[in-house]
Write a protein that binds this DNA or RNA. Structure first.
Length: 844
RNA sequence: GCCGCUGUGGUGGAAUGGUAGACACGACAGAUUCAAAAUCUGUUGCUGGUAACAGCGUCUCGGUUCGAGUCCGAGCAGCGGCACCA
């Protein structure tokens, strides 16, 4: 008897699919198209289990759609720009380009044996000049349409290395290499005007019914639409008034001070003549730029000594403080603080001994605010203390609306809609990215490159032996002629954020060979992506930027308006996790060990390891399992089956050696069963009808599972069905049919094994191209149902009844059951609830 | 700190508001074997009981409901994101 040898059958069927060009996508009108896309990988050089899970999910969908008569596009490429390539060059001397292309080659070699249904003809890397040149062309188009501009923005500055740091390079407020205290520093940078689309990006979320609700909610909160009041505080010293924006104008009577950002023009002006203010501003500039750091850091304030008039009472003067938690790029960079109803303001006021004034109380409580601010939900009715707009009892929202109305009528303020979403800063002071196609000329200013000069290629002759951007020190590359006046000028040395690269790659896949960003008829045909699959970590930035870019590409003529929401359906999968094995060195620092070096909680030398439960697989923690090893030990089908079998796809999955082993055993069993059943004689048997009913139920269940991303549920049904097929005392004909159907239903998951079984049973052509099995409704109908019977919500018995038995009959039968009689213990039922086909509940 | 998510046996997990624990791992027992591996069969939430059965049980505390793992409120813990990691 032949045994299951994935090392033989897997390459064989991969060659067969290649030879038949099974996965090559070509535009054609004879079938509906289906575009399935997984987020493309960063070429780190090694694939990991997260990739295996992500691409296997997409593969299941792609193969299922092929077998249901779709023209499927399932491409693959590389998100190839970014910091790791430069870090590698700094660490070991090579060139980012060589490192990246070598990694791509290595990773591709690891991906091919997985048997994914990818159309490798459309492969590209974002660091290919053919790709980033088109990106530069789009940048110029966007500039022309007013979607690109320059302004100052803060960056993390390492004062020792004299270089800009990424957030992840700032560790505890210090530069990762130099260890120097990081400062915030302003730099002129390039921006995309994503804020022009705030309203549209928000409204568009409503139409994304096939996106996870949580992703839409996160984006909604990120865009952060709010309505508030903008007004000015007049300065008592006659200086320029302070313009503030507030979402809680109803609490104006509780104002205790006016706060301005350290970057507010007034703060800068004061700093010029007041060394104390300058020192305070410098203090505020310490540390990194992340929101987390700003919001969890110590709240610092500085009393400027200046005061403003309260708009409702000219005799009420409020001090102006500079406060480090006020952001210059949200609203007007100035606020008024109402400590009674905002915890951060309250903490600040207690620290600096500023007054706390209650403006409203709960209906049943009038305790003044002490150390905890009273912040009820905006739809809760509260009792107001002498409110200027004449309110007594009203909700926060009603009060806000009434106050805006009041201020507008009185003429001292204006209702204003504000978004939290900021413009997208795309400048990076780094080498390994798409050069921004711009020239700086002393006489013409900032000038766009001519399109015929694109792509502006990265120079190859650069070195990474010192910190900073090599483009900055590359004199021959920097020196250019001004595209406008022809005089000597300087090339822009900033490159683009890698999020730009990944914001339109899905569109490029529709015509990756084109010498324009896209080709109209190809984009029209293939867009939108019907199913997009990727990690939840991209819920906000990547997906929001892509939605913006699709709109910008429409404005610039590179995508149809119908592709403005580029991803029809989104699925966010969980991570692959693994235990961490840890010991301590002589200084009690953790030392990590690879799973393959640990047996039964011990290292080879017998020392015990500490086991830290499931954490995201990461190289630094060494809790990684290399798919390459799994494939050589078990084959790709086992890896594919396991990553989808145990956990719901949207949740994390823990990789366990025993789980992989079990998957391998199961596939062996299927292979053995198939071999045995293929050898059976024909004819009928006792269980034929029952087996075929189970088969149709399995078809229905697995189809539903695949369609709804319930891969783990589909696999559980396949296990159960395989058990039925194995044990059924059916005739050869029925068993053969049941077995081939089992292989067919497994084919999106274990395509190689399924092809092998298909061939074993004399199937025609490839199972990959064979229409998906169809569940016969007539075979799914059940005549009897088992009803559990509860007494007071506790299950006491069950009855098997005809599906359409009358309620009265069911009640009668239920009351006769021994377990029910015992539970009733002579009591009279008050009420009997019969849910047809589901349950009976007797209430006493 | 802010936004979002998750929490069920020894383990991964299943369950349109309707029998909690499907399916799988592990464990235990048996068959097969000279023996082992592989395979096959059975048992397996916890407690008590030979058993029938009973009590308890889905992070915690409350609530809605004939009925809550599921809905609502308040906590606790873990995870993801927070605009220069990708």
């Amino acid at each position: 008897m032949s045994t299951y040898t994935p090392s033989e059958i897997e390459p064989k069927w991969q060659d067969a699919w290649d030879a038949a060009e099974t996965f090559k996508a070509t535009r054609s009108d004879d079938k509906p198209k289906y575009y399935v896309l997984e987020m493309f990988p960063y070429p780190s050089g090694r694939i990991h289990m997260g990739h295996v899970r992500n691409y296997t999910m997409g593969d299941v969908i792609a193969r299922y759609k092929i077998s249901t008569g779709h023209n499927v596009l399932h491409p693959m490429g590389w998100d190839a720009f970014g910091m790791p390539a430069e870090n590698a060059a700094m660490a070991s001397g090579g060139h980012p380009k060589d490192w990246t292309y070598q990694n791509i080659e290595d990773m591709k070699a690891q991906m091919k044996p997985m048997g994914w249904s990818l159309d490798w003809n459309r492969e590209f890397a974002t660091c290919d000049p053919e790709y980033y040149g088109q990106q530069q062309a789009m940048f110029l188009d966007m500039w022309e349409k007013g979607l690109v501009y320059r302004k100052n923005a803060v960056v993390n500055w390492d004062p020792v290395d004299m270089t800009v740091l990424a957030n992840e390079q700032v560790i505890d407020g210090k530069g990762w290499r130099s260890g120097a205290d990081v400062e915030r520093r302003e730099l002129t940078q390039w921006f995309f005007k994503i804020s022009d689309y705030s309203e549209e990006l928000l409204d568009g979320l409503d139409g994304l019914e096939n996106w996870p609700a949580k992703v839409r909610l996160m984006q909604e909160n990120w865009i952060g639409k709010s309505r508030g009041l903008q007004f000015s505080f007049a300065r008592t010293d006659g200086g320029d008034p302070i313009e503030v924006y507030t979402t809680r104008p109803d609490t104006l009577n509780g104002a205790s001070f006016v706060g301005i950002s350290p970057d507010h023009p007034l703060a800068k002006e004061l700093a010029e003549n007041n060394p104390e203010v300058a020192a305070f501003r410098a203090e505020c500039a310490k540390g990194g730029t992340t929101a987390e750091e700003l919001e969890t850091g110590e709240k610092l304030g500085f009393d400027t000594g200046l005061t403003v008039q309260h708009p409702l009472n000219p005799d009420w003067h409020l001090p102006i403080w500079i406060a480090n938690f006020i952001l210059m790029d949200y609203g007007t960079g100035a606020i008024f603080a109402c400590p009674a109803h905002d915890q951060r303001d309250l903490d600040f006021c207690r620290k600096y001994d500023l007054p706390v004034i209650d403006t409203f109380f709960a209906l049943d409580d009038d305790t003044p605010v002490a150390i905890e601010a009273f912040v009820p939900p905006k739809d809760q009715v509260v009792r107001w203390v002498d409110h200027f707009a004449g309110l007594s009892e009203a909700t926060g929202q009603e009060a806000i609306d009434a106050t805006i109305d009041f201020a507008e009528k009185a003429g001292w303020g204006q209702g204003k809609t504000q978004f939290r979403l900021r413009d997208w800063g795309l400048s990076r002071q780094r080498y390994w990215g798409c050069p921004i196609p711009v020239v700086h000329c002393d006489s013409c200013g900032v000038v766009p490159e001519k399109k015929e000069n694109l792509p502006i290629r990265l120079p190859d002759d650069v070195s990474f032996d010192q910190p900073g951007n090599p483009l900055d020190r590359h004199d021959t590359w920097r020196q250019v002629q001004c595209p406008k006046c022809g005089n000597a000028a300087r090339r822009e040395t900033d490159t683009m954020d890698t999020f730009v690269d990944s914001s339109w790659y899905y569109a490029r896949f529709t015509a990756p060979w084109a010498d324009t960003p896209t080709v109209a008829e190809e984009a029209e045909y293939w867009m939108n992506v019907d199913q997009y699959i990727g990690g939840i970590e991209h819920a906000i930035l990547h997906l929001l930027y892509s939605r913006f870019f699709a709109r910008a590409m429409n404005v610039t003529g590179h995508l149809p308006a119908s592709a403005s929401e580029p991803f029809d359906a989104l699925f966010t999968q969980g991570m692959v996790t693994h235990e961490i094995y840890q010991t301590r060195d002589d200084q009690n620092r953790p030392v990590y060990h690879l799973p393959k070096d640990v047996t039964d909680g011990k290292l080879a030398d017998g020392s015990e390891v500490e086991i830290i439960p499931s954490a995201k697989m990461s190289k630094s923690k060494k809790n990684v399992v290399d798919p390459v090893n799994i494939i050589s030990a078990y084959g790709a089908d086992t890896a594919r089956w396991f990553v989808l079998s145990d956990s719901p796809p949207e949740r994390d999955v823990e990789w366990t050696a025993s789980g992989a082993d079990a998957a391998f055993k199961f596939l062996n069993r299927i292979h053995r069963m198939a071999t045995e059943i293929a050898a059976l004689d024909g004819g009928a048997g006792a269980d034929d009808e029952e087996l075929l009913r189970a088969m149709h139920k399995a078809i229905q269940d697995v189809t539903n599972g695949v369609e709804s991303f319930g891969f783990n549920a589909a696999i559980a049904k396949l296990y159960a069905y395989a058990n039925v097929v194995q044990k059924a005392k059916a005739g050869g004909d029925a068993k053969r049919q049941a077995m081939v159907t089992l292989a067919h239903l497994m084919s999106p998951f274990t395509p190689h094994l399924s092809e092998e079984i298909w061939q074993m049973f004399g199937g025609e052509g490839l199972i990959a191209n064979t229409p998906w099995p169809f569940a016969d409704e007539a075979m799914l109908v059940e005549d009897t149902v088992t009803l559990p019977i509860q007494v007071n919500g506790k299950r006491r018995s069950e009855i098997a009844v005809a599906k359409d038995l009358a309620k009265e009959e069911i009640e009668k039968l239920a009351l006769e059951q021994e377990g029910v009689v015992r539970a009733l213990d002579g009591a009279t039922p008050k009420k009997i609830i019969v849910v047809p086909g589901r349950i009976v509940n007797i209430v006493i």
